[in-house]
Design a protein around this nucleic acid. Structure first.
Lengths: 103, 103
DNA sequence: GCTTAGGTACGAATGTCTACGTACCTTCGA
DNA sequence: TCGAAGGTACGTAGACATTCGTACCTAAGC
């Protein structure tokens, strides 16, 4: 279980990193998907639609994780992905609504 | 007066372009400066602090303009820079507050 | 007319992002 | 035990971003 780490604390989440992460349309799609689900559902990385290759996916989820947008828990076999809804709402109020409202 | 154009309409302002533009700390600084001023003050490009070279500045202001964040009017000699406050507030409510609240 | 200040355009160098293949790891199910 | 599924790590290739220098333009002031 290599680096399941790289999660910043709530107070360490930086606006620049968040905006950079959200600048990519693929990553915005992932966040929008997570926002659509009511509560903080845990999803697998593959469950978001099969665009791109495995390694590319890993890359994008690492960016999201390191920026503080999602949390990934190691389930051995797989990785549970959850949106850090409360942290983001507290740190950057209005941000998630902005993403949710796209398109 | 080369391309003083490249301003998207309000409805054409895309979230992706806006987020990309705001991902850069220099450009966020410019927007924050503009937000600090009460009304839609027209400022020159040079008035934001003298970081970097002239051509780099031009580049960053072009990104901001093409993303729809600022408006640049040709005053012959200089270029008046204004924040597209109303357009942004209408299209992406909460966005500007997010930028203003940084740091 | 000349100079200066504020800007743009273009090209080049450098750097960062994105995407991919390959190899490898871990668990679940046959 | 042997796949197969879900992921990571690493290296690499191509695309895009950032920065700069240089040349050029326009209006204002002398």
């Amino acid at each position: 279980m290599p680096d399941a780490e790289g999660h910043p604390e709530r107070s360490e989440i930086e606006l620049g990193a968040v905006l950079s992460a959200l600048a990519d349309p693929l990553r915005r799609t992932v966040i929008r998907e997570l926002l659509r689900a009511e509560d903080d559902v845990e999803r697998t990385c593959t469950s978001f639609g099969l665009w791109e290759s495995k390694s590319t996916r890993t890359h994008h989820f690492r960016v999201l994780r390191q920026a503080g947008l999602v949390r990934q828990v190691d389930r051995g076999n797989m990785r549970g992905v959850t949106l850090r809804r409360a942290d983001l709402a507290a740190r950057f109020p209005g941000l998630l609504e902005l993403i949710a409202g796209e398109r």
